[in-house]
Amino acid sequence: MAETPAVRRKKPSQERARETRERILDSAAQLFAEFGIAETSTNLIAAHAHMSIGSLYRYFDDKAAIVEILRGRLLTELEECFTEAVLGSLGLPLRESVAGSLRVIMRALTERQRLVRALAAEATVAGIGFGGLERRLLLLTRAYLLQQLGPRPDDELDTRAFVMVNAGLAASLRIALQPPPGLDPDRLIDETANMFADWLSAGA
C-alpha cells in the first residue's frame, strides 16, 4: 500500500524528534562527566545542544528526567555486558569464568568512568541505581552457581549469589573509578576471582 503524503511528512518529523532527544542526552552526558550533575543546569545542557531551553523542555520535564534515562542506559549496558560474559564462560574453569565476568564489568565501568563518577558523586552504590541491576544479576548468578555447583538448597544459592554480586560489583566499581596506585587492575581482578573460586570450590 502506497504511503500517503501525511505519513511521508510524519516520518521525518519523528526522526528529527529522536535526533533532537539524543542530542540533548549526549550533551547532558558530556557535561555531567565534565562538571558533575549538580553543577550542570538545563540551561547549560540546552546551550551545549545548540537549542533553546524551551525546546529542551518539550522533551524532558527537568534535569532529573535526563539523569534517570542516562542511568537506565548505563545499567542496561552493564547488564548486557555481564550477561554476555557469563553465558560465554559456561564450561570454562571456575577461576577463569569468574575472572572473565568481573573483568567485563570492570572494563565497562572504566570506559564510562566519568559518567559513572558523576552519577555516583552523591550516592552509594545502591543510590546509583544498581539496586535494579543487582536483582537481575542475582538471578543470572544464581543460575550460574546452579550450573557450576549442582543442586543446592535455595538459601545457599541465594546467599552465595548475593555475596558474589555485591562483592564483585563493589570491587569492579572501586578498581574502575579509583584504582589503587601501583597495583595492576587485572591482577586485582584475578585475585578477587581466585578468592571467589576457592570459596565456591570449598562448598562444591
Rank of each mutant, 00 (worst) to 15 (best):
E39T: 05
R16W: 11
E39P: 00
E15V: 09
Y59I: 11
A65G: 03
A47I: 08
T42P: 03
E77V: 13
L44P: 02
D26V: 09
D62Q: 04
E19T: 12
R58T: 14
E77Q: 15
M51F: 06
R23Q: 13
V67H: 03
N43C: 02
T20R: 15
G36A: 09
N43V: 12
H50F: 12
L25T: 08
E39Q: 12
Y59K: 03
R58I: 10
Y59M: 02
T20F: 10
Y57I: 05
L56W: 06
L74Y: 08
L74M: 14
S41V: 04
S41L: 07
A64E: 10
V67L: 05
S27A: 15
L70R: 06
E68H: 10
E34D: 13
T40V: 07
R18L: 13
I37M: 07
M51Y: 06
I37Y: 05
M51L: 15
A65Q: 13
L75V: 07
E19R: 13
L44H: 09
R16S: 10
L44I: 12
R58V: 11
E19W: 04
L78H: 05
E34P: 04
R21V: 09
E39R: 15
H50T: 04
K63L: 00
R21T: 13
F32V: 05
A65I: 06
A38T: 11
T42G: 02
L44T: 11
Y59S: 10
D26R: 12
A28L: 03
A64V: 02
F60L: 03
I66V: 15
R18T: 06
I53W: 11
I24P: 04
G72H: 07
G36F: 14
Y59G: 00
H50K: 13
L56P: 01
I69D: 11
A47Q: 12
S52L: 08
R71C: 02
A49W: 15
I24T: 03
R18S: 08
Y57N: 05
I69V: 15
A38H: 14
H48G: 00
N43I: 10
H48E: 06
V67I: 14
A33H: 03
G36M: 06
A29C: 01
E19Y: 05
R21G: 03
F60Y: 14
